[in-house]
Amino acid sequence: MALKMADYKTDVHNDWCPGCGDFGIVNAIQMALAEMGLQRDKTAIFSGIGCSGKTSHYINTYGVHTLHGRVLTFAQGAKIANPEMTVVAVGGDGDGLGIGAGHFVAAGRRNLNMTYIIFDNGVYGLTKGQASPTLKLGEQTKSLPSPNTNYNVNPIGLAVASGFTFVARGYSYDVRHLKDLIIQAVNHKGLSFLDVLQPCPTYNDLNTRDWYAGTDLMDEAQKRHSRIYKLEDTGYDPVVHYNEESEVNEKLTQSLIKSLEWGNKIPIGVFYKNEIITPYTHRLRDKIPNYLENPPAKQNISKNGVSNTDISQILDSLEV
């Protein structure tokens, strides 16, 4: 029987603030899982720490709520051991781009076949609103004693530069579009990254839902009822179509340039997509020919309660 969106929900009480952008993201994930018909026990949601960390408890698949900044490390370990699992990692921007920035970069270099979604709201919510890595220099959200003294991280740019092979941005109040992006991300052959703009109604009084809707603007954005526009509506082609330096460079460069757009025009959609780079699991298969058919989690390690691994050749070479 086909699974419905409701099958991917748990009965755990959701304690996010009313109006939180996180609701849109968790809904989009559940819709995407249902639309793809992913088997619940072959899917795992890994999460970091913070408001977004609770996501894994609200989704009725395997759920692993890990540590601050470390979600990618756990998720990658599981994927390497059992590559048949569909693995989605989620976390906040402070989690992934502050304390976890090193893992973010290294994960890009590996390019495992999985998805990472960042809930990007510019603040540390659960600790009462300190500046997060995506908050712009000089901005002062309401609980900051003084304006932010750090330059912001550019999540899209960092992902592209780190080697993520699918890089996209969504908006948490455009749930259907976000759901489509998640489906593309999960189906991508390699590591996919989704930067999801997500207003924090409690602590980020700058990038609010109204702000994203452009209510403060006098120009055409107000006519569009949004600062946000979709890359796919502009004829933007994110895909690296063939393996030539000029093609790769062009697509990388255009995504970087697009990632710098902010203010009155904010692009969402797919910035970059490259399926020519081999995923990490295939690199392992190049070393270990039967890795994909007989990955670590599937291997039989004993017979009648005793080791069945034959190390006699190595022992022979050590014998004098």
Partner: peptide, 22 residues
């Protein structure tokens, strides 16, 4: 080979959760 020992430990745990001796 990971980017640091934190990742090494995280991957070890993630792998162990799949039932793999890690």
């Amino acid at each position: 080979q990971t980017e640091d020992e934190i990742c090494a430990m995280g991957m070890t745990i993630g792998s162990a959760l799949t039932g793999t001796r890690s």
